[in-house]
Design a binder for these strands. Sequence first.
RNA 1: GAGGGUGUAGCUCAGUUGGUUAGAGCGACAGUUUGUGGCACUGUAGGUCGUGGGUUCGAGACCCAUCAUUCUCCCCA
Length: 454
Amino acid sequence: MKPSLPQGTRDFSAEVVRKRNYIFETIRNVFELYGFQPLETPAMENLDTLMGKYGEEGDKLIFKILNNGLERPEKHAMAKADFEKVLDGKNTKGITERALRYDLTIPFARFVAMNHGQLSMPFKRYQVQPVWRADRPQKGRYREFYQCDADVVGSNSLLNEVELANIYATVFKKLGIQVEIKINSRKILTALAEVCGGPEQVINITVAIDKLDKIGMDKVKEELATRGLNIEQVSIIEKYLSISGDNQEKLDQLSALLGANAQGNQGREELRYVLDYCQQSSFICDLSIDFTLARGLNYYTGIIFEVKAGNVQMGSIGGGGRYDDLTGLFGVPNIPGVGISFGVDRIYDVMEELRLFPGTVQSGTKVLFFNLGAEESKRAYSLMQQLREKGIATELFHDQAKFDKQFKYAEKKSIPYAVMLGGQELLDNTCNVKNLQTGEQQTIAQQDLPGFLS
RNA sequence: GAGGGUGUAGCUCAGUUGGUUAGAGCGACAGUUUGUGGCACUGUAGGUCGUGGGUUCGAGACCCAUCAUUCUCCCCA
């Protein structure tokens, strides 16, 4: 058979793994620096934990796992009946009761709902694990990819939003990626809906305005009209979408447009609070208000974030926001939270495209001992172990072979030093150390080798 | 869910209006007389042209189907 990979999945070579780890470590370190603690959850969840949490589209993209044991004869009648339901587009526990994780937020909410008694609030966790989506793969879109999430639950304080915004700024600064961190509030979108036909319009409105930069103002207006908004309401939304200027100007214009709407005032005050805080914080955390930002997930209720990379064509590389009642879905009400997510695979693609990985990321074997005979390699082996004890990655060539071959092996693995210890050196208790980049070679005492290379 | 592109050696790709035995570069392996690499030179291996049908005297090329892959839309990280 011809081996192949499931669609949308990838193998990662040593070079790629090292680059990915560089991103993971950068993000993890910043999370830790801000007091977040790690959590891991299973790759699979019960299907009903996930269903209905990501909207209608999201449900379709959940990878479902077929139950085991359906072939057992005593289950045939039931299994056939259940399969009929599946053919009608319904899910049934008889066929599938588990599914692969779709994101990290809902499993976290499940975890909090199960353990809230033991957790000291506010509880800050981060999580770095793969998620799976039965989506059609394309550029920057995979079926298996990693998310790095940081969430705080059990606190309404906007200080959390400030912290998370600063985490975004810090991580992308460390990685050297120029980004635009966009911020908005769901409350402002709610207020807009209240002014334009009532709260039940909020989904219709957000779906439409989210498309603004893709389909343009005219098409958005068209779509709003077909979704039941009258001319006056459409014109308010047009004014809303036309708001421009710096953050302060945008807030002022919004104020004029929405007037005394309570939700609107609250959303505006929250934005102002976060922006003020970030402005006076000691490092650069450049947030820009984007009133067209909506975010697809419908559990967000307050401030929302999205991160776009500059100078490159790529979907968002991070997103998040506040949700007032995520655990309510699991029977534990009144635990508010806010969180952000990093899309590592897209960050990788961006960094690769812009050549942002530092050369130091690749560090494999540092020293190769040449194999020049039985006695020689025995001595080399004991020297090698001394180097390894000092934390220096070292290899001994597997066979006695021509110099040519051993040099080429070192070169292919980009090993910077070769140590040659032959018959003469065996007698002298010396060895020849060659720097393979410069070609310089020197003879030193064997006992000095660990010190020389560290 | 809707619509395009592409499938030829391990990799990147040539292959003329359909015409004999399908090519190149890179890579791999071996060697250029057995203790100093990168360069160069020589040689070797490796392809049922994604798969199955069809048209034709003749198909890698044309037609149909199928599978894989990739991109766009929807949605998303």
